[in-house]
């Protein structure tokens, strides 16, 4: 009888056991920021946005890691889009800050056609513009990331090219550039206006694929950034821009004043501490590490900050 009872119990257990859930197998990895260093302070997280290319990703990681090391909670929103979209996201309150190129801000966001005299004037103008709508600029970086037109050395020799103006002699020049190049002053509009170039044929290309197109000869020229890691190979010729279509473009974090009020001077100090270290060489190296060596922006930023003593 006892044996029969135990058999019944076992059968029951087997039958009921099959009904359990199979959860817990893969708990999703949801935490946004790996908790390193000091425990995060209270208050809302600092929402950092980045635009849609390598240098921005690296800048985002630099600011995020430095702020987290300083005890802030950070939400990093990578790859938001072009300046126009990212700035609208900031204006709409979805972001607290993002790193922006000062001259680009003036020309594309503030829609100023007139170039400021020098980088300092540009910075003042941009800061004034932002402060009109509840934002401000923090300290700009030592490096500047100007746009430029690059060609292969052989192409330059063949057509004896030194300046953008020399391109007028060619019947047709193909140019690899991102889509927005088409409708920007720092693009076809400025080139035509200042240099009278109407023989440019844009081939829409996502950054950083313009180098590959240039290398393979599918385009004659490409729009590049002076901090691009690829340029460290000295395999390209940058055409001079005497008419200053492309602006100097130091980087300055655009930040909402509300966030500054919320988090206090400690926040701007932590951000400025990063910005101050970003020289052109440092930036080019980091870009090269990502674009050429294939490392992740997070790794590269971590290594840099560690070397500079901004995180453990």
């Amino acid at each position: 009888m006892r044996r029969a009872a135990s058999i019944v119990a076992v059968l029951l257990a087997a039958l009921v056991g099959g009904c359990g859930g199979e959860g817990d197998r893969d708990r999703a990895r949801t935490s946004t920021s790996p908790a390193t260093g000091d425990p995060p302070t209270g208050g809302p997280p600092v929402r950092i946005g980045t635009k849609n290319f390598t240098e921005q990703y690296i800048l985002g990681e630099l600011y995020r890691q430095a702020l987290e090391a300083g005890g802030f909670r950070v939400e990093l929103k990578d790859d938001v889009g072009s300046s126009e979209i990212t700035h609208q996201a900031l204006a709409g309150g979805a972001l607290d800050m993002y790193p922006e190129y000062v001259d680009l801000l003036l020309s594309e966001v503030a829609n100023l056609r007139v170039r400021p005299r020098d980088p300092e004037a540009a910075y003042r103008a941009a800061k004034a513009f932002e402060e009109r709508s509840g934002f401000t600029l923090l300290a700009q970086t030592p490096f500047n990331d100007a746009n430029a037109l690059a060609v292969k050395p052989a192409f330059a020799r063949r057509h004896r090219l030194r300046s953008i103006a020399d391109l007028r002699r060619l019947a047709r020049v193909t140019l690899a550039a991102p889509q927005e190049f088409h409708s920007r002053f720092e693009g076809l509009i400025g080139l035509e206006e200042r240099y009278g170039l109407n023989n440019l044929k844009q081939v829409v290309t996502k950054i950083p694929l313009q180098y590959a197109k240039l290398d393979s000869g599918r385009v004659d020229s490409a729009r590049v950034s002076t901090t691009d890691g690829q340029l460290r190979k000295r395999n390209y010729v940058l055409l001079a821009d005497p008419k200053r279509v492309f602006a100097t473009n130091h980087v300055a974090p655009v930040i909402s004043r509300k966030a500054l009020r919320t988090h206090g001077a400690k926040l701007s100090a932590a951000i400025d501490a990063v910005s101050r270290l970003l020289t052109r060489t440092a930036m080019q190296k980091m870009n090269a590490a990502v674009d050429i060596a294939g490392r992740t922006p997070r790794d590269v930023a971590e290594e840099f900050l560690r070397r500079k003593g901004l995180r453990s």
Partner: peptide, 22 residues
Amino acid sequence: LDLWANPVIRLANTDPADARSQ
């Protein structure tokens, strides 16, 4: 919505050509 749809709507309200190009 925050980082794309709403920014595009705002952009379209101020600068439709820019929004189209985006």
